[in-house]
Amino acid sequence: MNLYRFEVTIKEELIHVIIAADSDEKAFQLVDIELEKRFLKMPEVDDISLYEKRKINNGTGYVLSEFETIL
């Protein structure tokens, strides 16, 4: 199982999405699901990018201090 770090671009705005999944493909599917949960009206998603994955252990996490995507 991995912890994935995504950046999603929606209408020229960036958001972080963190997903636990056992494959890259599954992680991308779960990003969509998390976005659907987050928005009442699903916005147009411009870009979903996976920047990093880490093996999940106790304490695995990310600091989301800045975005890597340049708008």
Partner: peptide, 11 residues
């Protein structure tokens, strides 16, 4: 390297 969804929504 990164992974992304392209215009066809494919990873």
């Amino acid at each position: 390297g990164i992974k992304m969804k392209n215009q066809d929504k494919k990873m």
